[in-house]
Design a protein around this nucleic acid. Structure first.
Length: 192
DNA sequence: ATGATGATTAACT
DNA sequence: GTTAATCATCATG
């Protein structure tokens, strides 16, 4: 289930932009923070649609957040893509973001940089067209697990994963503890 | 029909 | 450190 080290790429009329996935969060059916916790609804229905689908939704009325459905059809679960290391299409990303740096180091930022919106909800990421994910190599470096960011329920579950030492993450593990964003510290996780 | 909520970000003081 | 922006979704009446 680890998307860390995979490459997210978006082809559009505007051009191509891509990035290495360096931070994710898992949301599972039995998890009170999961959108699918209370069963299928109009918004979360693609979470039940089977592996490889993109679940995109609008957060705070402002930001589009991208998830990848990983469980079999009928199971409401997904993995939030929280940060990318920019690889290609830097100019396009800068234009879309309206700034030079901090292009993909946050779940709302990366969707803006890649031009991802609600129209991508339900898209098959494995079919190759437009928005897609390719395997890439195994993530270099160590993987760290922490509790998740920005949620009010299920805060004790250590289901945020990121690459140790990676610069392009939303919140580095140490900082998150300082700011009280985490209930627990971070722990190393075996690289598979 | 209506009101509360939120897996965020950027701009303030 | 604090807060406004901004709206689709969902629970409730």
């Amino acid at each position: 289930m680890d998307l860390l080290g995979c490459v997210l790429i978006q082809d559009s009329p505007e051009g191509t932009a891509s990035g290495l996935i360096v931070e994710t969060e898992a949301y599972r059916p039995e998890d009170p923070a999961c959108h699918a916790y209370r069963g299928p609804t109009m918004r979360n229905r693609t979470m039940f649609g089977g592996p490889g689908l993109a679940y995109v939704y609008l957060s705070y009325g402002v930001h589009n957040l991208l998830n990848v459905v990983c469980e079999r059809e009928g199971v409401g679960s997904a993995v939030l893509i929280r940060a990318l290391r920019p690889l290609g299409g830097l100019e396009l990303m800068r234009r879309r973001r309206g700034r030079e740096s901090a292009l993909c180091n946050g779940p709302g930022k990366l969707t803006q940089a890649l031009g991802i919106d609600l129209s991508h909800d339900g898209h098959d990421l494995l079919s190759g067209g437009g928005l897609a994910i390719s395997p890439g190599g195994p993530p270099e470096g160590e993987i760290v697990a922490t509790t998740r960011i920005g949620i009010t329920r299920g805060t004790e579950l250590p289901w945020r994963y990121l690459i140790l030492g990676e610069e392009n993450v939303s919140v580095p593990p140490g900082l998150a503890v300082e700011r009280g964003l985490h209930r627990s510290g971070w722990t190393l996780r075996s690289p598979l």
